[in-house]
Design a protein around this nucleic acid. Structure first.
Length: 431
RNA sequence: GCGGGUGUAUUUCAGUGGUAGAAUGUGACCUUCCCAAGGUCGAGAUGCGGGUUCGAUUCCCGCCACCCGCACCA
């Protein structure tokens, strides 16, 4: 029996991973806040991504574009129109349909005539106003994707870092979509974070680059701790692809509620650069250093949703152990992304010498590792269970022998097995 | 956004037209020589706003949030 979404939501709340936004006022649909453990988990995922795709490569350039941009960006990209579909609703069958999909006054779902209401504007982009006046000219949008921030900086990057082809831009940042109906916890959100790459290639090299990125993405899923057999590559058929894309792969994950997109890999051609070149009147061509003809690069776009990764990880890590006694719930997170790497306890709370020694070890590890927790609450079993539930891979217990021979008990989250380790060998043992 | 359901403590749940209880978690103290032991004391809730009523957590209305379907997902 797999884990239910409710188990995850409840654990996330109870242990301080994820809270509904502004919960004391009743929350806000499609928006969630990260608590101490949640933000640690999220940062660890982001750092792993950043290290995998940016710092460990020499063809990647990081950047961070602002959320607010000139609205012409969205006119050129097609979002201003594509995100603005007039919709009508049938008063008979309650279907809601795009007006441009309807022919005449007949409802295409139930077939009744004259049941369609007045068209209503649906805009997926959040609007705001820049400057003190609120009029048409002051409208700005919260970006619905981070990608455009990279395309509109393409010229700046060419001019300042003179990259060799092929090269990529990478960015982690918030994006906002005014979803009609946010659903399924962190799956469909109105405010979310994306990790995106725009990888620029010569037009005849796109297939090769696409394949390399496909493999790199699979590698990343593995590294971050998602089981391979819960991830499925879906070749998006032509009729479902954006018209400019010759190929798109959705990486789908088996969520408890449905199997759906976790990340995407799209070939965008030169659609974006071409649009921005035309709309801005600026020359966005790449000029090869060997003096050959300038050209507009084509783009491969690997795109990850941070919250979907967080959710997929919590689901994958959630484990139950039915051994002796009560069932044990633990999060089998890879040590690299677990919010707490190691917890330190005195075996007994009322023995000052044990507590002092445990605090000493805690301080030492805190300096070295950082993600360390000290706990002397209740009894040793409770502390193990508590750490299990937040995914801490290791616990260290100071007992009376520790005072004599400077060894500690190292206990594993996954096996509950224990071994003795010397204090000065702990950090070696944990890495 | 539509239809249906739900909303009581951190969580999981009881319950009542006369201002609420459990389990669990949690804080303090005691106890405890390795897997949620035990004891004492403590903090902690009726989503928000109206209405009906002498009195509403309970009934009605609106809003908000969540769940299930539908639609949407560039």
């Amino acid at each position: 029996m797999g884990v239910s979404l409710e188990d995850i939501v409840s654990l996330a709340k109870r242990r301080g991973f994820i809270f509904p936004s502004s919960e004391i006022y009743g929350g806000l649909a499609g928006v969630y806040d990260y608590g101490p453990l949640g933000i640690a988990l999220k940062h660890n995922i982001q750092n792993l991504w950043w290290n995998s795709f940016v710092t460990s490569r020499d063809d990647m350039y990081p950047m961070d574009a602002a959320i607010l941009m000139n609205k012409k960006v969205w006119e050129a990209s097609g979002h201003a129109t594509g995100f603005n579909d007039p919709m009508v609703e049938c008063s008979n069958c309650h279907s809601r349909l795009r007006q441009d999909h309807i022919d005449g006054n007949k409802c295409p779902v139930c077939g009744k005539e004259d049941t369609l209401g007045e068209p209503k504007q649906f805009n997926m982009m959040f609007k705001t106003n820049t400057g003190p006046t609120e009029d048409k000219d002051s409208i700005s949008y919260l970006r619905p994707e981070t990608a455009q921030g990279m395309f509109v900086n393409f010229k700046n990057i060419l001019d300042t870092v003179q990259p060799d082809m092929p090269f990529g831009l990478a960015q982690i940042g918030k994006a906002f979509r005014n979803e009609i109906s946010p659903r399924d916890f962190l799956f469909r959100l109105r405010e979310m974070e994306q990790m995106e790459i725009e990888y620029f290639v010569q037009s005849d090299k796109w297939e090769e680059a696409f394949e390399q990125w496909r493999l790199s993405m699979m590698d990343f899923f593995k590294k971050v701790g998602l089981p391979e057999n819960n991830i499925h590559e879906l070749e998006v058929p032509e009729e479902d692809r954006a018209h400019y894309s010759k190929r798109t792969i959705d990486f789908q994950f088996d969520f408890p509620f449905k199997t759906d997109e976790l990340a995407g890999l799209a070939y965008r051609g030169d659609y974006d650069l071409k649009n921005h070149q035309e709309a801005s009147g600026k020359d966005l061509q790449y000029r090869p250093k060997d003096g050959s003809s300038p050209f507009l690069p084509h783009v491969i776009e690997p795109s990850f949703g941070v919250e979907r990764l967080v959710l997929a990880l919590l689901i994958s890590a959630y484990s139950e152990d039915e051994q002796v006694g009560e069932k044990r719930v633990f999060l089998k997170l890879p040590a690299e992304i677990a919010p707490v790497k190691v917890a330190v306890f005195p075996l007994l709370k009322n023995k000052p010498e044990l507590v002092a020694k445990a605090k000493e070890v805690y301080k030492m590890l805190k300096d070295e590792i950082g993600a360390v927790m000290f706990d002397d609450n209740g009894n040793i079993g409770k502390r193990y269970r508590r750490q299990d539930e937040i995914g801490t891979p290791w616990c260290l217990t100071v007992d009376f022998d520790s005072l004599e021979d400077d060894t500690l008990t190292l206990r594993s989250r996954d096996t509950t097995q224990q071994e003795r380790v010397k204090v000065n060998e702990i950090s070696k043992r944990l890495s």
